[in-house]
């Protein structure tokens, strides 16, 4: 399965991934129009200090704590992708409490949670927006493990 990986030495700390993620999940085309002046609520989050920066997306864990902890059954795994049914979710935040990466987020209105679904749930056509728009290839979308060439 293809997953999002992060190469922190390539991250410029530009936060474009956050903007493109938020925009993709709002389902809007023109980013400047939709996000101008608005507080964004992306599923991917950039961490930084004065030395390093890197983005943290959902890991789509094989043993997903968020899914096992979900009290409503709103979180499921489909083909390796950990997904959330916002219609079932009541926003109790048990998954926020459970995710070891801090990658399940309260949604902007606080009534449900949101998480990276590899852009399957929005209109980007399955190519994650954060990856597509990272200017320095610090976020990549690749098959899981591969054998190192000797």
């Amino acid at each position: 399965m293809k997953k999002i990986y992060v190469r922190e030495e390539w991250c410029l700390g530009c936060h474009l991934c956050e903007y493109y993620c938020a925009n993709a999940n709002l389902g809007n085309g023109d980013m400047a129009k939709t996000l101008k002046g608005a507080a964004i609520c992306p599923c991917i989050r950039v961490e930084e200090d004065d030395r390093i920066s890197f983005a943290v997306p959902c890991r789509h864990c094989e043993e997903p704590h968020c899914k096992k902890s979900c009290i409503t059954g709103a979180i499921s795994v489909e083909g390796g992708v950990v997904r959330v049914d916002k219609d079932k979710c009541v926003g109790c935040f048990t998954c926020v409490l459970a995710c070891p990466y801090g990658a399940v987020m309260p949604s902007a209105d606080g009534h449900a949670v949101q998480k990276c679904e590899l852009c399957l749930q929005n209109n980007t056509g399955g190519a994650p927006a954060c990856v597509a728009h990272c200017p320095n290839r610090a976020i990549i979308f690749e098959e899981e493990a591969e054998v190192a060439s000797a």
């Binding site: 990986y5 190469r7 922190e8 943290v56 890991r59 990466y101 801090g102 690749e142 493990a145 190192a148």
Partner: peptide
């Protein structure tokens, strides 16, 4: 502030980087 930045680069790499086996 809760964040992976508090951990060592090795721990972060384990979490976020593609693992080559």
């Amino acid at each position: 502030e809760p964040g992976l930045i508090a951990f060592s680069p090795e721990v972060r790499a384990q979490a976020l980087r593609k693992q080559v086996v």
